[in-house]
């Protein structure tokens, strides 16, 4: 099963901010089936989408060399349901960075209104402690980023287009 909970990156500034879109469609079984007769995108999957955006923001800051996983969901508030036909605009900002992890603040807008606000904490996996191998198959992360328009919008902190990441290149020699 695919586990993509954003459709596209729309903006990305290294070490600062990532923006992305999530279209809520009846074509997704989870939207149709989560709550009978009232299709919505479950809040947990909105958090997951924000976490995917935030996880990339954090991982990119380290050249994709760290294994970044969602460790904790802090404050989370949902102000309106995300219904079929809605387009969610996620904005994730880097809050703080530590040797062992990072925190981000995420906001979802829909029709110009705040739909949800969530604080997320990520941890960096230590080799051999929780995992012995990569989180992604060879080339998968780079392919995912390409499909989601990451390379078309991503810039470094000086506003220049990002260059090739050795860590991504190495995973697909």
């Amino acid at each position: 099963m695919r586990w993509f909970w954003i459709d596209r990156f729309t903006d990305f500034v290294s070490g600062q901010c990532a923006k992305g879109l999530k279209n809520v469609t009846m074509g997704e079984e989870v939207v149709d089936g989560f709550w009978p007769d009232f299709p919505i995108l479950p809040s947990t999957l909105i958090i997951e989408g924000m976490a995917q955006l935030g996880g990339i923001l954090v991982a990119e800051h380290h050249g994709f060399e760290k294994q970044v996983v969602l460790a904790k969901v802090g404050k989370a508030s949902f102000l309106r349901p995300a219904r079929n036909g809605d387009q969610l605009h996620y904005t994730v900002k880097l809050d703080s960075m530590q040797d062992l992890g990072a925190t981000v603040n995420a906001v979802s807008h829909c029709d110009g209104e705040i739909q949800a606000e969530v604080d997320l904490m990520f941890a960096f996996l230590e080799q051999g402690r929780f995992t012995d191998g990569p989180l992604f198959g060879p080339g998968d992360l780079r392919t995912m980023l390409r499909m989601m328009n990451f390379f078309a919008v991503a810039v470094d902190s000086d506003g220049k287009a990002v260059e090739e990441y050795p860590a991504l290149r190495d995973e697909n020699p």
Partner: peptide, 21 residues
């Protein structure tokens, strides 16, 4: 264990300090 990382983040922010591991 994961809460300790969260606590470190919150204390660093609340007191404007750095907490080495």
């Amino acid at each position: 264990s994961i809460d300790f990382l969260d606590i470190v983040f919150k204390l660093e922010k609340a007191f404007s300090i750095t907490i080495p591991r």
